[in-house]
Design a protein around this nucleic acid. Sequence first.
DNA 1: TAGTGGTCTAGACCACCAT
DNA 2: TGGTGGTCTAGACCACTAT
Lengths: 262, 262
Amino acid sequence: MSPTREHSPHAEPASRQVAAVLRAAIEAGELAPGDRLPSERELAATHGVARNTAREAVRQLSEAGLVTAVHGRGVFVRSERRLMRLGQRRYSRKLREETGLSPFHAEVQAQGRTPSAYLASIERVVPPAAVAERLGIRADVKSCVRRENRYFADDEPMQIGTTYIPWEIAKGTVLATDGPLGTGDLYARFADTGHDITYTREEVIARMPSPVEAKELQLPHGVPVLEVLHTGLDQDRRPFEVTQFVMRADWTGLDYTMAVDE
Amino acid sequence: MSPTREHSPHAEPASRQVAAVLRAAIEAGELAPGDRLPSERELAATHGVARNTAREAVRQLSEAGLVTAVHGRGVFVRSERRLMRLGQRRYSRKLREETGLSPFHAEVQAQGRTPSAYLASIERVVPPAAVAERLGIRADVKSCVRRENRYFADDEPMQIGTTYIPWEIAKGTVLATDGPLGTGDLYARFADTGHDITYTREEVIARMPSPVEAKELQLPHGVPVLEVLHTGLDQDRRPFEVTQFVMRADWTGLDYTMAVDE
DNA sequence: TAGTGGTCTAGACCACCAT
DNA sequence: TGGTGGTCTAGACCACTAT
């Protein structure tokens, strides 16, 4: 027997017991992705608890990423994640030249979804310390251009990408303007300036989103973000751009294959 | 003026307002890492709300990873993350030979902390489908050995690593036993069997932990995990082991530098 | 023992959605 | 209009920690 619902010392809290029942139903497939859970009031009645207790159970599932509540409609089992797998191939020159697509567009199309992206802002700015350090530029003057991009798949926001380019590289080129980039993508334009992306350093962390990020990425509760600080290095191992990606982690994975250092 | 606490349509919920005040104090440094927040009952009194409402505010901060509640003691501003940065260097043969340390130990020592690890279980098992696929072995028989390891820094759990090794490689070697591994680490022993780790594929996702993982890693609320599915490839690009790492994301980062595919 | 967070109750009103 | 989740109240008791 599992711990009973009766009063007894050290019993599992009622909210956890209700959550466990729902979790089991979801994992057994009795509640399939997209299905609606019983309403909080129903759960309260059937399990003999107060509505707040049933609500707490739902909250636990929501935090764990299993369900999503929709105001006025109900609580639904979350759909399977459809993972976009982003790897170092996304910087491939061959891929760029063959498809004429940016790496993000190529990746999303390969998943059978419709990609879109737009430049949200472009500005000459003082770089954050971490960026200045990686680019080897000054952190006390407007030494770089910041390009902020939003990326979507089927009109659902997937990533925010903030690229920092040293002013010395960007000045006088399309990189410093909000004009169209032409055939290929940003990396084709970097190649024009003599910086051919040859190596890439990716520093990855995971964390919960800030309120602003949760809003911009339309994140349900319980979805973390992957933050990738990407540094592009050219044929001479010189860094020429840093991009901070913030990606919703339920739809995004990273896939790297690399040689082990000697 | 920000939305008032008075009754008015579309006002910010009281719990959010309280949370915002606390968040601001934390971000301004008035509440430093390690500091205790006012108790829920105090917050309720000073903000003129019910205790449950103050509690909801604290919960929002906890979910966002800013604070940690300790039963019976109080709610504390979370410490700065002390990031361990794990990269492909951790598989370096040179590092292995020079230090005689496993990659995890070397990484933790470099952070000035005391590493430890133990083998929690070892068993001959039917591999999960994803593992069998990557190893090119059968998923319907006990075709591999599973070694489950726990990793600690200063006695705090950091990672769970589950390694799957094809039986054909492990049989008759120390890899299939719970005996000591000898000088170096697992990868030194793989080298003995003719598999020298030369490439590594790492598939990375982030998600909230399962209840079991939250318990084993002693995770506070609001901390996601990084899940890395690592495949070791030898000098002939043959896969010889797959390890699933589950790492607490507030103390772990990944750092990869690699050549861009052609 | 006093104070803390953890859980729970039995209500209430509001905002949102479908019909 | 009725049902849903979102928020809130004013209590209550329990479990844990420090003194």
